[in-house]
Structure formats: structure tokens, C-alpha cells
């Protein structure tokens, strides 16, 4: 085994050790909730009354299901969010390494951000950022 592949294996090992804690924490989180739910099931009273299962709408009986059409504006914000969030993910590796590369890397990111800023300005002008 070469030194390089050994170090790759070491890195994988380290990655596994690091994110093992994340795995265990996930399982613990679920176990915590399940324990509480079981305790509640054992302790809490339960009745089969039909009226209790109606949807809470301040005393009135709800007309139709709640999952109906919703406003278009949520969709617009979601699309804008995806654009800028993906961009943020691109900026992360750049932010840690551009100093070593030199001014050219900085100007490239400036162009990238300028294009997105133009996009934001366009959305602003078109009124996509306005809650209506």
C-alpha cells in the first residue's frame, strides 16, 4: 500500500469517527422522542369521543380540506432562495482559499456576485420582492 492511499484511508477513518457522533446523536434524538411518547401513552388518559377529532377552527366546522391553493408569493421567494443558497454554498470553499490564490480569484468572485446582484436588482425592479 502506498503512502498516499494509506493517508486517504486515514482520512476516511477520521471522517467516520467524526460523523459517528452525528449518527449516534440522530438515533438518540429519535429515542428521546419515542421514550417520551411511550411515557405519555402509559400515563395520559384517552377517550374515544368523536367530537374531539374535529379540526380546531374556533368553534366552527371547517369547510373543505385545508390543503388548498396558496399564494404565488411563497413560490417566488422559494425560487429566489434556492438561487442564493446555492450561491452561498459556492462561496464557502472560495472564502477559505482565495487568499492563497491571489487577486484573480477575488475578481472572479466579484464578477460572480455582480451577476447575482444584477439578478436580485431585476427581481427587485419586477416587484418579486414585494409582498402583495
Amino acid at each position: 500500500m502506498t503512502a498516499e492511499s494509506a493517508s486517504v484511508l486515514d482520512n476516511l477513518d477520521q471522517l467516520f469517527t467524526d460523523y459517528l457522533a452525528v449518527l449516534i446523536a440522530t438515533v438518540m434524538g429519535f429515542v428521546l422522542i419515542i421514550t417520551a411518547l411511550v411515557a405519555s401513552r402509559l400515563l395520559a388518559p384517552y377517550s374515544e369521543e368523536r367530537e374531539k377529532g374535529t379540526t380546531y377552527e374556533c368553534g366552527m366546522l371547517p369547510i373543505r380540506r385545508a390543503a388548498t391553493n396558496v399564494g404565488m408569493r411563497f413560490y417566488l421567494y422559494a425560487i429566489l432562495f434556492i438561487i442564493f443558497d446555492v450561491e452561498a454554498v459556492f462561496i464557502f470553499p472560495w472564502a477559505l482559499s482565495y487568499v492563497g490564490i491571489g487577486p484573480m480569484a477575488y475578481y472572479e468572485m466579484l464578477v460572480f456576485v455582480a451577476i447575482l446582484a444584477a439578478g436580485l436588482a431585476y427581481a427587485w425592479k419586477k416587484g418579486a420582492l414585494k409582498w402583495q
Binding site: E57, R65, A66, F74, Y77, F81
Partner: peptide, 21 residues
Amino acid sequence: DNRYAMLGALRAAAQSISYEL
């Protein structure tokens, strides 16, 4: 399946993604 809950969830999502950036 409750209108208040549905609207609240959508508002929570819109607000949360807007301020996440």
C-alpha cells in the same frame, strides 16, 4: 389539515428561508 396551521407553516417557511441567507 387546519387552515391556521397551513398558513403558519407557509409563513414560517418563507420567513425562515429568507433569513437563512
